[in-house]
């Protein structure tokens, strides 16, 4: 009981601060801090210039599944900018986000995308040129565990897609290539950043397979000891955005939240996206960054693999393809 006066005074203080100007909260995935710091710095003056008034944008970063959970439990985020479609869907299923959220903004509400690429140590000592080279004997790979992380799932799908492309859609050959590559994985990490640390700080592996946004950032750092190999084919990874209608309606921020997400699609927004090593949707911006974000043939999970649900059943569920392949690899090692 004695805690209540203090509480109320804190609540009162928070209320006065909030009413002074418009404020929105963007709940985002864990490694987008620099991207949205730049986006926010550009959007705030643009919004003011268009007659929108003073705006403050707060950021919350964390694993996107965790962020979705927090919003369900009461985190007052007006917009989400995630790296997993499933996590936005979870919010839609719980009526926090519009049911047709994917149709609310262009390109499936994914203003930018990334692909998986290959990071090798400077000079490319193992002569890696494409996914198929990862199957060679003696190549060691670090990637995220496909059982626990979206990052790892995209990697496995990329190997499989490369197999299908190389062998005329022969599923048996694609399976064989995927198996050979998985046999070369020395560490399956739990998350993208830990995989990076394993490769850069613990210096394990000849190859790190992760989002291009990460590999390019590592390779373009001053004095970097790494270089990026862009493969011939990769899987398009979406970065879905949505207005959290339930929160925005209550806080009266629906319009500014939409304007914020629209901004990501403008040439200015796309430029910032490309600068931060993501692939823009805008063809003009993409052309200007083609030297860095080299054109790559992409396949989409929906169109090419028949959607995440099917992919999960076929590849990643307990006892599905990844489990089978790893079991076979382990059995062959013993014999």
């Amino acid at each position: 009981m004695k805690r209540f006066p203090l509480l109320l005074s804190i609540l009162g203080l928070a209320a006065t601060v909030a009413s002074a100007q418009t404020e929105i909260l963007n709940a985002s995935y864990d490694i987008s801090r620099e991207l949205f710091a730049e986006v926010n710095a550009a959007f705030i003056p643009a919004y003011k210039a268009s007659g929108g008034g003073e705006l403050t944008i707060k950021q919350s970063h964390g694993g996107s599944s965790r962020q979705a959970r927090a919003i369900l439990e009461g985190l007052k985020a007006d917009v989400v900018t995630f790296n997993q479609v499933n996590d936005v869907q979870l919010l839609a299923d719980n009526k926090f986000v519009a049911k047709d959220w994917a149709a609310r903004f262009p390109h499936g509400s994914s203003p930018y995308f990334s692909v998986h690429s290959i990071l090798v140590r400077k000079g490319n000592p193992k002569g890696i040129k494409d996914w198929a080279d990862l199957a060679k004997a003696g190549v060691t790979i670090v990637q995220v565990n496909p059982k626990t992380g979206g990052n790892g799932r995209y990697a496995v799908l990329a190997y499989y897609a490369a197999g299908l492309q190389a062998f005329n859609n022969d599923a048996a050959q694609a399976r064989a290539l995927t198996k050979k590559i998985l046999a070369n994985v020395v560490v399956f990490e739990s998350g993208g950043r830990t995989a990076t640390s394993t490769f850069t700080e613990r210096e394990i592996g000849d190859v790190l397979v992760t989002f291009e946004a990460e590999t390019l950032a590592l390779a373009s750092a001053p004095g970097s000891a790494y270089q990026v190999i862009t493969p011939s084919v990769s899987v398009l990874a979406e970065f879905p955005v949505a207005v959290v209608e339930k929160v925005a309606a209550k806080r009266g921020t629906a319009a500014v939240a939409k304007a914020y997400l629209d901004f990501l699609y403008t040439p200015q927004g796309q430029e910032i996206v490309a600068k931060n090593h993501y692939r823009p949707r805008d063809a003009g911006v993409a052309a200007r960054y083609a030297a860095k974000l080299t054109p790559v043939k992409t396949v989409e999970v929906d169109a090419f693999f028949g959607g995440w649900e099917k992919v999960t059943k076929q590849f990643f569920d307990n006892g599905a393809l990844v489990d089978t392949l790893l079991k076979e690899v382990a059995a062959e090692r013993i014999n």
């Binding site: 805690r3 203090l6 509480l7 804190i10 609540l11 928070a14 927090a70 439990e73 009461g74 985190l75 007052k76």
Partner: peptide, 11 residues
């Protein structure tokens, strides 16, 4: 609101 704000951190 008693979650994900200063109040919840303090309590």
């Amino acid at each position: 609101s008693m979650a994900f704000n200063v109040t919840s951190v303090v309590i």
